[in-house]
């Protein structure tokens, strides 16, 4: 299940929804990304998430489908917020559910790595020094690449 929304989400309620009435799930992993008040040496008061409506949902669904192809997942949830956010606010939620923990852990990490580099979202930071669009980080690109490079994750 994939959602893009401005409103906050409740990670506990989302997890309950995902595994409700299921008896084949032995492990679930939840990841929540939060907004920090500081990025490198800059103070950030507001972070505004922009997306490409339509393509964002499509990209997240494709990434989710790829995870289900690679790992034996029973269910998954991806929620990404858009609009203005304040320090401490939740930005993104990924939940994976599987029979065993290894698939759930790995798939959650994969989903986060891929959604950061393959889904059309952009962050703008606003603070005392003005507004600036966040630059993409090569460490994020490296993290996404490890799932395509030869190795155990591929």
């Amino acid at each position: 299940m994939v959602r893009v929304q401005t409103e906050d989400f409740d990670p506990g309620a989302e997890l309950d929804n995902l595994v409700a009435a299921r008896t084949d799930v032995g492990a679930s992993v939840s990841f929540v990304g939060h907004m920090r008040a500081r990025n490198e040496d800059r103070v950030v008061e507001t972070m505004t998430l922009e997306h490409y409506p339509g393509m964002a949902e499509k990209a997240l669904s494709e990434i989710e489908a790829e995870a289900h192809k690679r790992w034996p997942l029973q269910a998954s949830t991806i929620i990404h917020r858009v609009g203005p956010l304040k320090p401490g606010d939740r930005i993104v939620l990924v939940i994976t559910a599987s029979a065993h923990r290894q698939a759930a852990f790995e798939a959650a990490e994969f989903l986060m790595d891929w959604l950061k580099t393959k889904a059309p979202f952009w962050k703008k930071e606003s603070g005392p020094e003005g507004d600036s669009w966040v630059s993409s980080r090569s460490t994020d690109e490296d993290a996404a690449q490890r799932w395509t490079a030869s190795g155990k994750s591929d």
Binding site: H51, Y52, I91, M112, A119, P120, F121, W122, S136
Partner: peptide, 10 residues
């Protein structure tokens, strides 16, 4: 057609 910089979500 859409033009945009590298993605920075998540």
């Amino acid at each position: 057609i859409a033009f945009y910089p590298p993605f920075t979500g998540g």
